[in-house]
Amino acid sequence: MRKIQVQGVHHITLVGADRQTSIDFWEGLLGMPFVFEQPNLDNPGEGHLYFDPGDGRLITIFTNEDRTPDNRRTPTDPGCVHHLAFNLSRAVFSQVLERLKARGIANSGVKDRGFMDSIYFKDPLGLLIELACYKFEPPVGCTHAQVMLEAHKTRVAAGDDHIMEVHLADAIETLVARTQGTLSDRSGAGGA
């Protein structure tokens, strides 16, 4: 049977409360430009706000002025969204705790995930948000996913429980060897 091959996330749509709560959070806190607005074409009583998360794709929010924010944790039952994660540069990530504190937003503190660092907090409607920062940059022409695949293979071969920085470094070396040519013998120029 033939696949329906996807080529990335087109957009994610969330059910929001009022319009201003969405603008204050998505653009005001997370810096996502508010780029488009129209009625919800399936429910004209709602607004449909569009935000750019930084990669040209979209986060969209259905708003209704009759709904008010409720920051109790959203359901985590099977089929529900557990959290949304957004990529940050190391420079911005290093400022997150200070900036959340300045706004009085409770958070998890920095969590070391082996291949990335993460900070978690809830949006005004109780959805868990993760701000993540990779511990590596992929080689030119490669993606983070390709590095993760190679690091996973290295981790499994080593019998390690989770991906660590050594696996990332080895994965990057493997990808460079695979994608970049050299005139020398790759068996260890310069020693060990």
Score class of each variant (00 low, 15 high):
K3F: 14
V6N: 06
G8T: 02
V9Q: 01
H10K: 11
T13P: 02
L14A: 05
R19C: 04
Q20F: 14
T21L: 03
T21D: 02
S22I: 00
I23Y: 13
I23L: 14
W26M: 01
F34H: 14
E37S: 04
E37L: 04
D42G: 11
N43Q: 03
G45Q: 13
E46Y: 08
H48V: 05
Y50M: 01
Y50P: 00
F51A: 05
D55L: 09
D55S: 14
G56K: 02
R57P: 00
L58F: 11
L58K: 07
I59L: 10
I61N: 03
N64Q: 11
E65Q: 11
E65M: 11
D66S: 13
R67L: 11
N71W: 01
R72S: 12
R72P: 01
R73F: 14
D77W: 15
P78M: 02
G79K: 09
V81I: 08
L84T: 05
L88K: 03
L88F: 05
S89Q: 03
R90E: 14
V92C: 09
S94R: 09
S94T: 06
Q95C: 12
Q95H: 14
Q95W: 13
V96I: 14
E98V: 09
L100E: 12
A106G: 00
N107I: 02
S108K: 03
S108E: 04
V110C: 13
V110P: 10
K111S: 07
R113H: 03
R113D: 11
G114N: 05
F115G: 06
F115K: 01
M116S: 15
Y120L: 12
F121W: 00
L131Y: 11
C133F: 10
Y134K: 08
Y134L: 15
K135Q: 14
E137D: 14
P138W: 04
P139F: 14
C142F: 09
Q146E: 15
V147E: 08
L149A: 13
E150L: 08
E150V: 07
K153F: 12
K153Q: 15
T154N: 13
R155G: 03
A157C: 05
A157D: 13
A158Q: 15
A158M: 10
G159Y: 04
G159I: 05
G159R: 01
D160Q: 12
D160R: 08
D160V: 05
D160F: 14
D161P: 05
H162Y: 15
M164Y: 15
V166R: 13
A169D: 12
D170H: 10
I172W: 07
L175N: 01
R178I: 00
T179M: 06
T182A: 13
T182C: 10
T182H: 08
L183Q: 11
D185R: 01
G188M: 04
